[in-house]
C-alpha cells in the first residue's frame, strides 16, 4: 500500500507506542544525505512538556507511518538526536524555499513542501510541492513535481531534468499517477 503525504503535514503528528502511549510529537522530518528518503524525525514533547527533545526517532524505529500517528514499538527505539542527525549526513537538509532549476537552466519555481511516499518498508521522497513560475504554466500556482532519479540538491537549489516539468500535477491524487508515468519514462530512457 502506498500513501502520499506532505512533509509539513507530519509536524505535530503524535508518536505512539504499540502499547498505546503517546511519547512525543514530530517536530521535523530529517532527510538522509541526497534527500531521497526520510532518515529520521526530530521530536518535541507533548502538552506541558512541548519543548524540543534530546532524543530523535530514526526511520528504522518506525513501525507504521499513518495519517493519524507515527507508530513505534516502544520508547527504546528513540536515540540521541545529535547522533541520528549526523548519521543522516549533510545535504538532505532544509529544501523549503530552495529554487527549482531544470538542467536546461530554467527556473521552475520554489519548493514549498516535500511529497513523501510511504510504504511498509520506507518513506521515500516522491517529489516536491512547488510554487511555480511561468515555465510551468501559470505563475505562482501550486504544483507537484516528481522527483528525478538523478538530481542534485542543496538548501539553495534543486536541479531536475527538464522532462520532469512535463509531469507536474495540480493535486496529490493526480500526482501519484504522474510519478508512476515519470518513473516509467526514466527507466525506459
Amino acid at each position: 500500500m502506498t500513501v502520499l503525504m506532505l512533509a509539513t503535514e507530519l509536524a505535530k503528528r503524535p508518536v505512539v507506542t504499540l502499547a498505546g502511549e503517546a511519547v512525543a510529537q514530530v517536530k521535523d522530518v530529517v532527510f538522509d544525505s541526497g534527500g531521497g528518503r526520510v532518515g529520521a524525525f526530530t521530536l518535541s514533547g507533548r502538552g506541558l512538556f512541548s519543548g524540543p527533545m534530546k532524543r530523535a526517532l530514526p526511520w528504522s524505529g518506525v513501525t507504521g507511518l499513518g495519517e493519524d500517528a507515527v507508530m513505534i514499538r516502544g520508547e527504546e527505539v528513540l536515540e540521541d538526536r545529535k547522533e541520528v542527525v549526523e548519521r543522516s549526513g549533510p545535504g538532505g537538509g532544509d529544501v523549503l524555499g530552495a529554487r527549482v532549476l531544470s538542467d536546461a537552466g530554467v527556473e521552475l519555481g520554489r519548493v514549498t513542501d516535500v511529497v513523501i511516499e510511504v510504504t511498509r518498508e520506507a518513506a521515500a521522497v516522491a517529489g516536491y510541492q512547488v510554487d511555480s513560475t511561468e515555465a510551468l504554466g501559470h505563475r505562482e500556482r501550486t504544483v507537484y513535481l516528481p522527483l528525478a532519479g538523478t538530481l542534485a540538491i542543496s538548501g539553495e537549489a534543486l536541479l531536475v531534468p527538464a522532462p520532469a516539468a512535463e509531469y507536474v500535477a495540480e493535486d496529490l491524487p493526480g500526482f501519484a499517477e504522474r510519478v508512476r508515468a515519470f518513473r516509467t519514462r526514466t527507466t525506459e530512457a
Partner: peptide, 13 residues
C-alpha cells in the same frame, strides 16, 4: 489487540 495506553488502543492493521 496490541496495546492499550493513555493515548489509544492499538490494533493490528
Amino acid at each position: 489487540l496490541l496495546g492499550i495506553g493513555g493515548h489509544a488502543v492499538v490494533v493490528r492493521a
